[in-house]
């Protein structure tokens, strides 16, 4: 973890503290008593099967939703308070990019500094070009999001997050729907950004290679509960059946799960 590197934008990085968070939609409890701490400058991955509550947890952390009980603190500010976003530079890279389809790549990146009046048009242009150059996207500046491939959309989404000069970068499934080479590129970008700008990174992913390759610590979440929080090395040697089943799934046609799919067994 690059603890000595200072964030070039704000000089500081931020930590996250999730304290006994529960989240319910009607009678469905999606998150149950979740507690975890993300240290400043750390790359922290959250893994878990589909429907385990990973994205819901992210929404509580970035303040898009309010927990039913418990709280999330970012640098000691309550994440659900809209004012927190004015105090902490937080950027969210959405799973599908969430690029503004009516704006060009350049305007997607320039929206944040323009709306927050962070300088004149020349300085905004410099800021946007710098972010585009970090992600090697200079030639895509004038393209519309609909003209981009899946991998490029992800990179543009990361570039848009960088324009916000973040202290905390939150990624939701950054390698989903990408081929292995593009996934590796995105993993490298996440790791490099931490080295370059000392940003705290929180990554929700299914991608074992990504998590084991770049994370300082990994949390496994299942059925809305945290099962373990450990380093990649510790996780590889974890012998709990529920963890090994998830980390090293074996495809066995004789497995009862598959037999259920056979029409004669219904």
């Amino acid at each position: 973890m690059p603890a000595d590197t200072a964030n070039p934008f704000t000089g500081t990085t931020v930590g996250i503290s999730v304290e006994n968070v529960n989240k319910s939609y009607g009678n469905v409890n999606v998150l149950r008593d979740i507690s975890l701490d993300v240290k400043p400058g750390e790359i922290f991955c959250i893994m878990g099967p589909s429907g385990s509550g990973k994205t819901v947890l992210l929404k509580q952390i970035v303040g898009l939703e309010k927990p039913t009980s418990g709280r999330v603190l970012i640098d000691n500010f309550d994440a659900s308070d809209p004012e927190t976003r004015t105090k902490v530079h937080l950027a969210f890279v959405f799973q599908a990019g969430a690029l503004f389809n009516s704006l060009s790549v350049y305007d997607n990146l320039a929206l944040y500094p323009r709306e927050h009046r962070l300088g004149d048009e020349n300085s905004i242009r410099e800021r946007v070009r710098h972010a585009l150059s970090i992600l090697s996207l200079e030639k895509a500046a004038d393209k519309m999001p609909s003209e981009l491939s899946g991998g490029m959309k992800k990179r543009v989404a990361i570039a848009r997050a960088l324009v916000m000069e973040p202290q905390l970068l939150v990624y939701d499934e950054p390698t989903a729907e990408l081929d292995p080479i593009l996934s590796a590129t995105i993993s490298e970008i996440i790791a490099t950004l931490r080295e370059q700008i000392a940003v705290t990174s929180l990554v929700v992913t299914h991608d074992r290679a990504l998590a084991l390759g770049i994370a300082d610590r990994i949390a496994i979440i299942m059925d809305g509960r945290i099962r373990t929080i450990s380093t990649a090395q510790e996780l590889k040697h974890n012998t709990e059946p529920i963890i090994t089943d998830f980390m090293n799934p074996v495809i066995d046609p004789k497995n009862p799960r598959f037999r259920k799919l056979e029409p004669n067994n219904e």
Binding site: V62, R85, L90, A91, F92, F94, A98, F100, N101, L111
Partner: peptide, 20 residues
């Protein structure tokens, strides 16, 4: 249609996280 599609494709959430 425009706002609903922005909502469904998380563009509104993106605006909120950008504090806009």
């Amino acid at each position: 249609a425009e706002l609903a599609s922005m909502n469904v494709y998380q563009e509104i959430d993106a605006l909120k996280t950008m504090n806009i």
